[in-house]
Design a binder for these strands. Sequence first.
DNA 1: CGCCAGGCGAACA
DNA 2: TGTTCGCATGGC
Length: 331
Amino acid sequence: MTRMDATEYPGARDSGAILFPVSDYDLAATLDSGQAFRWRAVDDAWEGILAGNFFRLRQTTDGISAELLGSAASQHGPRTTHSEQLRDYLQLDVDLAAVIATFPEDAPMRAAVAACRGLRLLRQEPWECLVSFICSSTKQIVQIRQIIARLCERFGEPIPVAAEVRRLHSNAERGAQKAKGKLEPSDVGSDRAFAFPSASRLAGVSETELRACKMGFRAPYVLAAAQTVASGGLDLARLHLLATDEARVKLMELPGVGRKIADCVLLFAYGKQDAFPVDVWVRRALTELYFPHRRPTPQRLERFANTHFEPNAGFAQQYLFHYVRTLRPKK
DNA sequence: CGCCAGGCGAACA
DNA sequence: TGTTCGCATGGC
């Protein structure tokens, strides 16, 4: 295991943990808010894989601590240091107060901000984000997680994990899973980790194998996306150079990718703030919060969504989504 | 059990 | 340009 660069966390030198000082960051809300689907809560920490690196993150009083638990043998993603990877992925340099200051000043937005203090947007890897949201259509978030977990377990590159970490996992995790009677094959591997499978890897699997990951009718969409990206028909690494509208057109050329999924990728992987994914939850939020006891036409709602929340509309959208989905689920 | 889930595309008018 | 419907699968 390589030692991480950057300031080490005092008192945690043995584990190689480093501390990122940051305030106003709710790690749990951010990692568990339906933007990304690979983070797991393990005791008081969050574990996930990023560009082939297996990280454990913790919210601390001063910020966020990070440990590297293992890495895939081959190079995944850009050649940056681990700390740079995390800094970019977690968007630690974003001034959240400055972003929130640009939100529209109305009662619904104020309520959402007050309820979701510290919620952030991640900056994910485009390929993983694209596949994840192709698999998201008409699926609940828990199911999306299961699909993606199976996909990685079956086709992703294994990540060697130190024996000490492995033992900790098998004890804590399996006990909890067994108690709930939910020990599935894909959960048994909780002491193993896998990188997200590359486009070229998935381009070579069969639709049947993808369907075995329980992604149903989305399987041919994932396969087509993998083949298009692997063959160079769509260069995900260069999409960030395009304006949002042009990048959206490119993404929507893929079968199974419509406006909503394209906007999720534009927002969560490319940081395009003028992307505003409107799903059932956001539609519900907009209708209930801004048009109570009225019945806005779809066009009216779309125009409102596209004009009211600038210039950080995507960020505002995530606050509304998280607000209505998790903080007032009953009603 | 029926309903719905961070939708999309084909088939229609 | 605007609805309607089928699509896999599983949680509640």
